[in-house]
Write a protein that binds this DNA or RNA. Structure first.
Lengths: 338, 338
DNA sequence: CTGAAAGCGCTAACAG
DNA sequence: CTGTTAGCGCTTTCAG
């Protein structure tokens, strides 16, 4: 049934029906008539027609690098909650860490098929800036600050600082660093800086050979831990940029007789479930992923409501979760999810 | 720019432009003219207008209970791959295990806003059947069989059987069971049956007090393990319906001096990352989530192409991954993801 | 092979 | 407060 048929059935004009559904002026009497007819017929306006006519789709695109990453999944859950509550639909693009798919996704936007975008950030290229700047839609960058755009991010530098300081304050003096590519501002660059801040504050020199770069997974953490620890056997504590990497490092220690935390303390950022239940539960810094997702969605909705809202950057805090990998907690504590 | 302006620019009729984009009859000369004009202007048809006109949206809805579950996330990745490749967009609804949100999502479908649905199954109520049957869209049920509908599922019964048998074949004679609600056919009922099959085959009687039901998380696994093991301290092996539950049980053992696998062997289904790196790596049965997602999407696309395709049920296999929780592998083996 | 014309279902001026 | 009217941008008969 379309609006014309429905209007005839209800004995009112099409305009009245439209007003009914869009909150326009309408006498009580007509309102009641239409309500009754809706009840009887189950009529509702066609979203497609509304989209075409109003040029608004009530759909939001979320672009992310990897869905099966706990942090991404939690952010999307937060986004989904808010979008759902506000009658928006969530269109998902999983780029599998593939820049070309990310670009393809951004091209989707040229087709005006969504009202706004939330981009879970990883590595920005100059190409990204070009494409993003050319979009006439509201864009929220989630996970790192990006000049000129709205963003919701974490205090990655502070988080890394806290994790590292926690080990140094326990008397460790030979810290190692297992990071990720600096092209990733949040997880790469900022966490590196936080690590360096902590060393500087503690008056511990940073030796060049004591750092290494891994990919975002356990296996790479294992391999890089191997490289690093064979080269620098004197390390007595290790900061890892992500929990996955820390778990890989922990596996290396386990299989090579390095005791954690006695011989080597380990900390990380992310506070993942796997890290909490690992062989030695890993001291990690919790970032508030779900909250970040929620805030990003709320920020986007604000911009949708008022396009003249100023760009803003929200930075969320963090919480250190001390566990056995720094000699802190008995195994069964501090394990369950938030 | 719209089709009218573009047609004028290219010096052809609107119909010619439409045929160009939809593969209709067109002389080579016009085709070339239009191609050049597209190149020059970047014109592309409006998806909204096409949706309204053709009544096809090229969007697929995926409904799932919990995004931050490794299994769900992997399934969605598989779905996303296939959809992407075929030019379909993925609309996501995360119900947070909330039946009312699931119903709300299904109502979205009445609005004709998508071409098809993939429902990651958990618990089906009579209400589900009513709503699903009333839909005129292709629906694929992912994760369990559901009479009358297309589905892609796992051999949960076989998986549970394999995991249980693995322990019994090592001489264990007092098996316990930590399951989930039987309302969930795949994870609840079928895995329970597989467990029972294994006992029957081995001639081991199933004692009523040796089973317990948990929720889908570690904490509940811990609690139920506590209840079960205090009541039945003679258990020498434990099958858990999910890895999360098994990890909870393992934590309980760790904190109560129960040695795994010496005192108690543990197995589960799911083969999650957390289980692989746990204190004692957990012997688990791998299900092929990503593949299942892919197959579901492919099945849906087939039905979209030819609505008269017969309903079919694809059942995927499984693979036992023996690890330390059954005394099988050295800690560092068998850990990395597929 | 081609173009004209008739809508898809709806909203938003506009004139009452 | 209300109905009429003119499209949103496109596809698809239909008659050449």
């Amino acid at each position: 049934m379309n609006i014309t048929e429905f209007a005839a059935y209800a004995g009112v004009s099409k305009a009245a029906v439209s007003r009914y559904f869009n909150g326009g002026y309408l006498s009580e009497e007509k309102r009641a008539r239409i309500a009754a007819a809706v009840e009887a017929t189950g009529y509702h306006p066609s979203l497609q027609a509304q989209m075409l006519r109003t040029r608004r789709t009530r759909q939001v695109l979320v672009i992310l690098p990897k869905l099966s990453s706990e942090s991404c999944a939690r952010m999307v859950e937060g986004i989904s909650d808010v979008l759902d509550q506000n009658g928006y639909q969530l269109l998902l693009v999983n780029t599998s860490n593939d820049s070309s798919r990310e670009v393809a996704a951004l091209n989707l936007l040229q087709q005006n098929t969504v009202d706004g975008v939330i981009l879970i950030a990883t590595i920005f290229t100059p190409e990204h800036r070009t494409v993003l700047a050319s979009l006439r839609l509201p864009v929220i960058i989630l996970g790192q600050e990006y000049p000129g755009f709205c963003s919701v991010s974490h205090d990655d530098r502070g988080a890394a600082h806290a994790a590292t300081t926690h080990m140094l304050s326990k008397g460790r003096t030979a810290p190692g660093f297992l990071g990720v590519t600096m092209l990733d501002k949040a997880a790469g660059l900022d966490r590196r800086r936080g690590f360096e801040d902590a060393l500087r504050e503690a008056g511990v020199p940073l030796r060049p050979g004591r750092t290494s770069i891994a990919a975002f997974n356990m296996e790479s953490g294992y391999e890089q831990a191997s490289t690093l620890l064979e080269r620098e056997p004197s390390l007595d504590c290790l900061f890892c940029a992500t929990d996955s990497i820390a778990i890989g490092a922990l596996q290396y220690c386990r299989s090579h007789g390095i005791r954690v935390p006695e011989d080597l303390m380990i900390t990380a950022v992310g506070d993942s479930e796997a890290g909490r239940v690992a062989y030695v539960p890993i001291t990690s810094v919790q970032l508030h992923y779900r909250t970040a997702g929620r805030m990003a969605a709320e920020m986007l909705l604000e911009h949708l409501a008022d396009p003249h809202t100023k760009p803003e950057n929200q930075v969320l805090g963090y919480a250190l979760r001390p566990r056995a990998s720094t000699g802190d907690a008995s195994p069964e504590e501090n394990i369950w999810a938030e």
